[in-house]
Design a protein around this nucleic acid. Sequence first.
DNA 1: CTGTTAGCGCATTCAT
DNA 2: ATGAATGCGCTAACAG
Lengths: 350, 350
Amino acid sequence: MAKDPVTLQDVADAAGVSIATASRALTGKSRVSKQTTAHVVRVASRLGYRVNVFGRALREGTGRTVGVVVPVISNPFFGQLVHHLEAELLDHGLDLLIADSHGETLREKGRLRMLVERRVEGIIVVPSDAEESAPALQDAARTTPLVQLDRRVEGVAVDYVGVDNSRGMSLLMEHLNSHGVREVVLVASDSTTSAGRERREAYEREATRMGMVMQDPILDEFTLEFGQRAAQQLATRGSMAEAVIAGDDLIATGLVIGLKKAGLSIPEDVLITGFDGTMLANICDPMLTTIEQPFASLARETVRALVRRIADRDAPVMFSRLSPSLRAAASTGGVPAPETENADAEAASS
Amino acid sequence: MAKDPVTLQDVADAAGVSIATASRALTGKSRVSKQTTAHVVRVASRLGYRVNVFGRALREGTGRTVGVVVPVISNPFFGQLVHHLEAELLDHGLDLLIADSHGETLREKGRLRMLVERRVEGIIVVPSDAEESAPALQDAARTTPLVQLDRRVEGVAVDYVGVDNSRGMSLLMEHLNSHGVREVVLVASDSTTSAGRERREAYEREATRMGMVMQDPILDEFTLEFGQRAAQQLATRGSMAEAVIAGDDLIATGLVIGLKKAGLSIPEDVLITGFDGTMLANICDPMLTTIEQPFASLARETVRALVRRIADRDAPVMFSRLSPSLRAAASTGGVPAPETENADAEAASS
DNA sequence: CTGTTAGCGCATTCAT
DNA sequence: ATGAATGCGCTAACAG
C-alpha cells in the first residue's frame, strides 16, 4: 500500500528519458521540449512522485525554510505575529520553523544556533533583550540572513521592521491630553526591550511637552501579573494619577483587573491605555484604548526585508518603521468628540 | 570572516584521520579510541565545524523535525499548546515546523501535504473538522507517524491525545447543580469538531441526568464574535436560563461581554462557564469558572505518543484521555462552599 | 579500532 | 533538446 520512495530516477525510467531531462522537465528551470515536459509531468504524477527535499537541499545548499524566534508563542501578540508571518511566507513557498526563547537570552542563543545549524534560509527574531541578545543575534546574522521584528537590539547593523512606537505613544498622549488629563503615570516594561525603551522615552517626551505631571513610573515586564501587581502599588499610593499608560495590552489588562479589585472605576476614577491592539483590548472591561499594530503589514514587510536580504547579503541595512493607529475605547472614556456623551448615566442634558 | 562551509572531510584532514573515523568520533555511535575521539572533537570545535543537516538527512532519510498543524496559532489556546509542544520536543532533540490551517480543511490538507513532502519525522495535528479533515489526515498518516491532539476525526485509526471532555463537562454540570441551577442553555461550536460534539453530548447527558431544563442550544464556532452574537440572541429570547454553558473560554468571554452589554449582571442574573482554562478565563470580568486543560501533560503525552509511533509504525492505535480539573470562579458565584460566603457585601452575619 | 568505499536523491555541467 | 557523469556532506557496510 505505502511503497513511498519513488525517486526521480524512477520517473525518468518510466518516462523513458534520462534523469537529467526528468529533472529539467519537473523544475522547469531549463529548456525541454513541450512534448517531453508534458509527458514527464504526467508520468511523475501518475507515479505519485514527490521531490526529496533533502536531496534537493543538499544539492542546492538550502531547504526552503525560515526560522522565527519569539519570546513566548502563547502570548497573543506573538501568536498573531506568527500567524501572519506563516501566511506571508507561504506565499513565498517558504515554511516556518518555530522557536520559543521563553524570554531567556540563553535559550534564545541556543535556538538561534539551532536555526543556523539547520541552514534555514533566513531568520526572523523578536529579541528578548535589547542588550544581552546582541551577541547571539549578531553571531547568527553573520552566517544567515536575519531580520529583527518588533524589538531590536542596541547598535547592531541588522535589518529591523517594527511599528513606530514613538508615534504610537504620541497618539495615545494626544488622546489623553484632549481629554484634559494633567497627571499621568507609566506602568511598563523596564529597559530590557527596545519597545519598552522607545515607548517610555516617547511617553516622557510627550508628557513634558504637554506639561503633564508625571508620577514615578513602575517598570518591570510585559505580563498580566505585573499589571496586577502594579495596580496594587498604585492603589496604595497617596494619590491616583488621572491616567495610567501601560506598556502593552497585557499590562493594561492586568491594571484594569487590579484597579477594579481595588475598588476603582474605569474610566470614572482613572483612565487606562494599552498598546498593541491585541484581542485582549477588546476583552477587557472596559475595552481598552490602545495602539493598533498593523500585523499584516508588519508580516509582509518583514518577509519582504528577509527575502531582500537573502537575495543580497550586502544590501544596506534596512530600518523599517510602520505607522500605528489609535483605537479609542471605553477605558479612556471613548472617542474624543462623539455625537452622544454617554448612553446611560447623566442623560437628559440636551 | 565568514568562510563557513567546513565539512567533515575538512575536520578529518585537519585531525589526520579518515572521514569515517571523524564521523564516528563526532556522532559517538561507534567505537573509537578515547584518544582520537577527544582529538577529533577538539579539532572540530577549533574549526567551528557544524554538521550539515541536509547531508545527514539525505543519508538517514529524515531530518530531526516534526510538524504541527493547528487551526489558528493566534488563538491563545493553541498558542499555549504549541508553546508546550515546542519545549517538549526540544527535550527530544526535535524541532518544530509550524503550519496554520486557518480552520479550513482545504488549507489543512495542503499543509499536511507540505509536511509529508518535507519528510518530517512525525506530525501533530489539531484537526479542524471532525469529518472533512479525515481524508487528508488519513492520507498523511499513511506515510508519516501522526497523532491527533485535542480534536479528532471520525473513525480513523490514528493516535489521539486529548482531554476528557466528557469528564470536564460533568465537573461543570455538577458544579452548577450544586449551585441549584435548574435551567440551562448551551452555546457552543456546532458538530464540526470532536471537542464540540463531546462536550455537547456530555452536557445533554448530565443535564438530563440532573433533571435540568435545557433551552434550545445555540451552536456555531469557537470564536469571541460568536459568543457576543449568541449573547444578543439570548438577551432577546423570552426568559434567560439560570446558567449558560459555553463551548470554550473564547465563547464564554464573548458571552460575558455581550450579556453585560445587554444589561445583565454575572453571576447575579445568570451564571456562565467556560472551557479550556486559558488566560482569557482570568481576564474576563467576572473571572470564568472553567475546565483547566493540563497543557504540559497534554504536550508530554502527545510527544510521547508520537515518538512511540515513530519507533513502531505498527504499534496499536493509542487513545489517550487526560483528566481535566475544575477551576471555580466568580462567573458562577465562586467556589461552592467556602469559609466566607462573600467578602464585601452582606457581611456581619456572624 | 580505523580506513576505504558506496550511495542517499537531486540539479547541473559538459558533451552531443 | 537531451544524455552521461559529477558531487553536494554524510553515515554505514565492509574490509583490514
